[in-house]
Amino acid sequence: MLSSFLMILFFVNIKTAVRSCAPSEFFVDGQCCFMCSPGSSVFRACTQDSITSCIPCTRGTYTEEPNGLLKCFPCKNCDQAVGLAVLHKCQLQKNTICGPLNGYFCSGKARDGGCDKGQKHTVCRAGERVKSQGSAESDTRCEGCPEGTFSTKDMSLNCTPWTDCALNGKVKHTEGSSTADVQCQKTSVGLIVGLTVGLLCVCLVAGVFIYLKNKGTFSRNQSSETGDKETEGPDLPIQESMLPASNNANHRLKAAVTPCLQPSLTSKR
Rank of each mutant, 00 (worst) to 15 (best):
G39I: 05
F43M: 14
R44E: 15
S50D: 14
I51K: 13
I55S: 11
C57T: 00
C57M: 07
T58H: 09
R59D: 06
G60K: 02
Y62M: 01
T63F: 00
L70I: 08
F73Q: 09
N77Q: 07
Q80K: 11
V82L: 11
L84M: 08
A85N: 02
V86S: 04
V86Y: 03
K89Q: 15
Q91V: 05
Q93F: 12
K94C: 05
T96C: 00
T96Q: 08
I97T: 15
L101G: 06
N102I: 13
N102D: 11
N102E: 14
G103I: 05
G103F: 01
Y104E: 07
F105P: 04
S107L: 03
A110T: 02
A110M: 00
A110V: 00
A110K: 00
K117R: 12
G118Q: 05
G118D: 02
Q119L: 12
T122F: 03
V123L: 14
C124G: 07
C124L: 08
G127P: 04
G127A: 05
R129N: 05
Q133F: 14
A136F: 10
S138I: 08
D139V: 02
D139C: 08
T140D: 03
T140W: 04
C142L: 09
G144K: 13
G144W: 14
P146E: 10
P146G: 10
E147M: 12
S151V: 00
S151E: 11
T152L: 05
K153F: 06
M155T: 05
N158M: 07
C159E: 14
C159Q: 11
C159P: 14
